[in-house]
Amino acid sequence: MFDDKTETKTMNMIEAIRDAHDVMMERDSNVVVFGEDVGYFGGVFRCTAGLQEKYGKSRAFDTPISENGIVGAAVGMAAYGLRPCVEVQFADYMFPAYDQITQEAARLRFRSKGQFTAPMTIRMPTGGGIFGGMTHSQSPEALFTHVAGLKTVIPCTPYDAKGLLISAIEDDDPVIFLEPKRLYNGPFDGHHDRPVVPWSKHPAGEVPVGYYNIPLGKAATIREGSDVTVLAYGTMRFVAEVAAEETGVDAEILDLRTLLPLDLEAIEQSVRKTGRCVIIHEATRTSGFGAELLSIVQESCFYHLEAPVMRVTGWDTPYPHAQEWEYFPGPKRVGEALKKVMEAA
């Protein structure tokens, strides 16, 4: 991570994201930030607080409530030479922008043979765990990874969020930056009945001051183990950790961090070593990103596998309100999968 001499500060994920913006706006005057409630107020989750005051209204500003407007304008600005980093208030509200994201931003480079490009970042809070019901809880990552020309990133700690957001802003292609909103204020392992743990109690809440980056496309091994590889990202990384602890299964947990481009090597190495694999995500199962991971594991590690690969995911239904904890794939379901995959001969 970083050596002892690096100056660090305790940050939650919101502060880390804000800091990444600050660092990049300071370094590169082409970085502009906008979205609904993003300017004066600093975002409904406060991820852009203070930026307008520091960098002025033409570099950090409020937009009309039009997600396709936000993304479409960002495409035009990026093509001109700016580096927009825009916010969609919730991933659930990106759908009006889906045309601009998938048909325009994603293909500008390809269809113009590189004459026009869209170096832009689209941030959006994702995932459940906050009683947001069907319109503040969805996990649409597979709708982005399915599209050629987009990169998709999903950090789950303040340290990663800052380093990855800096890389996303510096990247010359459009990057979808999904922020698991349940993790903004602290790690969450799915035990909703236990006291909330703040980031100040977690080592990844120590964030270097100033510039650093974490390259896109690199997974992190959160826990080494020999029994089974768990492929996780977002909030599920913490669920995986607690499930391994509670079941005593010696799981090797990979936090994928970037879904596209994917760290194939890390996945293959680990699964070949353990011979077992459990894939977990909050998103619905059918055609979810887990299906892609499962195919990759099957194609490249088949002869190393000792048990069928399992998935633990959200159900194939809209995200319910009162039934949040029956829907959210918590430690119990993940633990059962870990045990089951170990039972197989």
Binding site: D92, F95, G133, M134, T135, H136, A322
Partner: peptide, 30 residues
Amino acid sequence: SNVEDDLEGLQLPVLYSFKEAGYFTVSGNL
């Protein structure tokens, strides 16, 4: 979002749906 909720707790508070009242099911998407 209790047991007597006609929408069985599935939908966010205030996003009612009362067809008989001429009140279309309210979407959270603006």
